[in-house]
């Protein structure tokens, strides 16, 4: 067919070659770290070498050995088992936070971005007001209202994360709503909700996904921070933040304790961060 003009063809080819040359290291390394971590954590849900809550008087602050990969804590609990379980808790809290944050953020952002007008004005001013506080501070306020506990911390962090997602989604909807394909969808009689969530939303996915990854990191860090402060996950349950606060008393006698927990936090955050960057590069 004469429609395939030569110019277009060669241009596409060179674009493809360029894209192939730039290997997306962020995405690859991020995926490797994240998948490894997730495998560890999933195993931790069903199997840990020791019961993470079981105390063994004879093993108090035991060093690294064949029996205890990362040694034992001040109660004689196996640190490796606790780290496995604890990362699981942290991951669950972060996932719940992101689900609430993105879910509500998508709905709010879509409505305000698509319709605009007074609804947009009101909701976005409220959003700005909430956004002005650091999310961890906001979560602290909610925790003091709701009380501590794992479910409450998910709710508190989730609410605190809504404004940033709402903003991102709204700006994406503002960008997309005047596109020709949206006009086309209106033209064939598609309803507003269908246009918003079936036609526009998939177009916001690259941006949304990379901000979900960043949000995930912030959620991991926020959970760790709050549990460290003692208002997050409550004992005897393990979470990375909790364990970090327990470990600090032995920072000099057993530096490996805090270090191994810190490394787990860093790996989690690094993996998701790189994934987010990689997804952004994919476009």
């Amino acid at each position: 067919m004469s429609e395939k003009t030569h110019g277009v063809k060669t241009m596409r080819k060179s674009e493809k070659e360029q894209a192939a040359k730039r290997i997306n290291y962020n995405l690859r390394i991020g995926a490797v770290i994240t998948i490894t971590m997730c495998v560890f954590i999933l195993i931790g849900f069903v199997y840990t070498p020791y019961n993470p809550e079981a105390m063994d008087e004879t093993q108090k602050l035991a060093g690294i050995s064949w029996h205890h990969f990362l040694g034992c804590d001040n109660f004689g609990r196996d640190i490796f088992s606790r780290v496995l379980k604890g990362s699981g808790t942290t991951l669950l809290v972060a996932t719940g936070t992101i689900l609430i944050g993105t879910g509500a953020g998508i709905i709010l952002g879509a409505l305000t971005g698509y319709y605009g007008g007074w609804l947009d004005e009101i909701l976005m001013r409220i959003n700005d007001a909430i956004f002005a506080f650091p999310s961890i501070l906001l979560a602290l306020v909610f925790i003091s209202l709701l009380g501590t506990g794992t479910v409450n911390i998910v709710i508190a962090l989730g609410i605190a994360f809504i404004p940033s997602f709402a903003r991102i989604v709204r700006s994406e909807f503002l960008r997309c709503k005047n596109m020709d394909y949206v006009k086309q969808a209106k033209l064939i009689g598609a309803g507003d909700l269908r246009i918003m969530f079936v036609h526009i939303l998939p177009n916001t996915l690259p941006v949304l996904l990379s901000s979900v990854m960043i949000g995930f990191n912030n959620a991991v860090l926020a959970e760790a921070g709050m549990s460290y402060l003692g208002i997050g996950v409550q004992p005897p349950f393990a979470s990375l933040g909790r364990m970090l606060s327990e470990a600090q008393a032995y920072l000099f006698t057993r530096p490996g304790y805090a270090l191994s927990i810190g490394i787990f936090i860093i790996l989690l955050v690094l993996g998701f961060g790189l994934l987010g960057e990689g997804i952004k590069e994919l476009k």
Partner: peptide, 19 residues
């Protein structure tokens, strides 16, 4: 709309949803 009255625009490059 779409069933009895349809319309096509000038810009075939942007009238289709890229995803």
């Amino acid at each position: 709309q779409g069933k009895d009255i349809s319309m096509i625009f000038q810009e075939p490059m942007t009238s289709l949803n890229p995803v």
